[in-house]
Nucleic acid binder design. Structure first.
Lengths: 346, 346
DNA sequence: TTGAAAGCGCTAACAA
DNA sequence: TTGTTAGCGCTTTCAA
């Protein structure tokens, strides 16, 4: 085999100083003579030294790593993790979460460990991973309301930040969006455009974000003179949007405005409408939610309620970092405001 | 603070044996009396012991972690890593890579560290990460042909497996698809359908996969009586597909069959065609490449050439694992075969 | 089959 | 400001 990787010892010998001194310059601790600093720096370059992380972690008790967990709520192995992962990334939402997290981590030379937790075994795996000190904390994005992971993490006192407020409450920090206000913005947009027969395709109603978006939408519609709004429940996928719209149309063929609880479903709604020969937005106005990539690539481009996922994810990482360093001990929450983005479907 | 996490020592004391014995049962080494094994097992449960990974890694010299690197070819910080990450995940391709990798890693209780390398700094970061022993090897997916990362990795003798054959050659294992054959399948499908005026929207021609797909397509078209096939270069994005098709139509308004080098561009082609009032497949047949999620959600569903990305990614992980364990020392390559998936655009 | 003991490479008191 | 030294928690010879 090739020779061993150089250690602190090697650098120290090369520079003619002690290991402690080399450690100090490596870690940028002050109180080191500039001349010696220079000397050590050169020795590091000559030897091609790279500090062994395991050794450092062993003493600092920090992995300088965080886990990014996408968590479902399955209890058995009904679905392989591979299938779950594939399904998850089909929604542009998760790519945005990754982008936001990476945006925060990158300047700190940190990189996330990606984990998918869909079964009880997976959840146990996440717990173990953290308890072994392989990661200092977890960022979790749940796809279901009754995800047991947050509770487990909180009970184990592991630093954690959630995307979205947990239901039931768990003493963990989280980042969220004012979904109700998002629903309100969507309703206002449809009302302003003069819609007379609005309808909505909701997200899974077990998810509180779906509930909130719906509540905000309904309340505002009620004030606008539409006490009853037909509704069909979707599953945040394109197909479910198509299906939900099919149902809606069956009972209310004269719908002239639809609020879909995410862009993917809104895209499905547009597809179906078009297949049925109805024009968007001339016959039916459509408004989505998220402002993900599909909103722009949809034909026509989608009017939608923007959720600043990247910023939210970066904020999650920032909060987790504070928890890990002990700069923050109590759970906190940060709620972002949605924003209407008008394109061509309204 | 809460009390320290239990160590081997604690378990040993609790079980009335030595640390060495506990270590043996934890690592499933044979030669341990079943009775004692049982005894230790219980002590582990009672104490809630979880082995400290840093300590273990320090002696085994294994992080039991691999890096999944998405690598561009930028040289400066023209684009933030966040923007790069967002762009990358806009293509369903990467989600499938993640899914495939996770599918292999999961049964081994391993999880990938996600890294994006778009600038020289990023690449240095990847090298350092591996040299520090934070990950045992890297899986790299390059988005550009002239990505310098593989060469750097090879020079540093770091275990690495690439997605796609590197150009110029680098002594590293890789997994690839027979792109030329994929182009052939696409041509055959169009020919069989009776297309008389075929055209193609290629991927970035700097990428060898694009070149190969094009070559296979052209050769087969030539044999089928179409020595010249109009072409427009795209960038693997939906927008570029729309743009390329616009160009094609401008010069060849009578096109009746289009092969787009990936599904995203094929979707763009379909959108434009529809906007121009041309029916798919009645007026123009369209065929994509990849068989990613968009192929199914596209209206009409896309006929496409399937690239088994998940299986390919899993194979990458398997090869890397072998390299890391020293079970394989020389670079190897595994080439998968494409497959035609007929849906409704031909 | 089990235990004693020597490190793995690093940081952080504590001394000098 | 620098060096000495004692571990961090684990695996792994080597003896018993």
């Amino acid at each position: 085999m090739s020779r061993q990787a150089p250690t602190l010892e090697d650098v120290a010998r090369e520079a003619g100083v002690s290991r402690a001194t080399v450690s100090r310059v490596v870690n940028g601790v002050r109180n080191v003579d500039p001349a010696i600093q220079e000397q050590v720096q050169r020795a590091i370059e000559r030897t091609g030294y790279a500090p062994n992380r395991a050794a450092r972690s062993l003493v600092t008790r920090r992995a300088e790593t965080i886990a990014l967990v996408v968590s479902g709520a399955g209890s058995g192995p009904q679905e392989t993790q591979e299938a779950f992962a594939a399904r998850v990334f089909a929604d542009p939402f998760f790519g945005r979460v990754v982008a936001g997290v990476v945006g925060f981590l990158r300047p700190r030379s940190m990189h996330p460990v990606l984990m998918f937790a869909e079964s009880a075994d997976d959840r146990h795996e996440v717990l173990t991973y953290l308890r072994q000190g392989r990661a200092d904390g977890a960022l979790v994005v749940s796809t279901h309301a009754d995800d047991p992971l947050p509770t487990l993490l909180a009970a184990a006192k592991l630093p954690t930040v959630l995307f979205a407020r947990p239901t039931p409450p768990v003493p963990l920090s989280y980042v969220d969006l004012d979904h109700r206000d998002g629903g309100r913005l969507a309703a206002l947009a449809l009302l302003e455009r003069g819609c007379r027969r609005p309808a909505t395709v909701t997200g899974p109603l077990a998810v509180s974000a779906s509930q909130e978006r719906l509540a905000g939408f309904r309340d505002t519609m009620a004030r606008g003179g539409h006490p009853y709004v037909p509704l069909a429940e979707g599953g945040f996928t394109l197909d479910s949007g198509v299906f939900a719209m099919t149902q809606l149309l069956a009972e209310h063929p004269d719908v002239d405005g639809v609020f879909a609880a995410n862009d993917l479903m809104a895209q499905g709604v547009c597809q179906l409408l078009r297949e049925r020969g109805m024009r968007v937005p001339d016959d039916v106005a459509v408004i989505g939610f998220d402002d993900s990539g599909v909103a722009r690539s949809c034909r026509p481009p989608l009017t939608t309620v923007r959720q600043p996922v990247e910023r939210m994810a970066a904020e999650m990482a920032r909060l987790l970092d504070q928890h890990i360093r002990g700069e923050r001990t109590n759970p906190t929450s940060v709620v972002f405001d949605p924003e209407l983005v008008v394109r061509e479907t309204t």
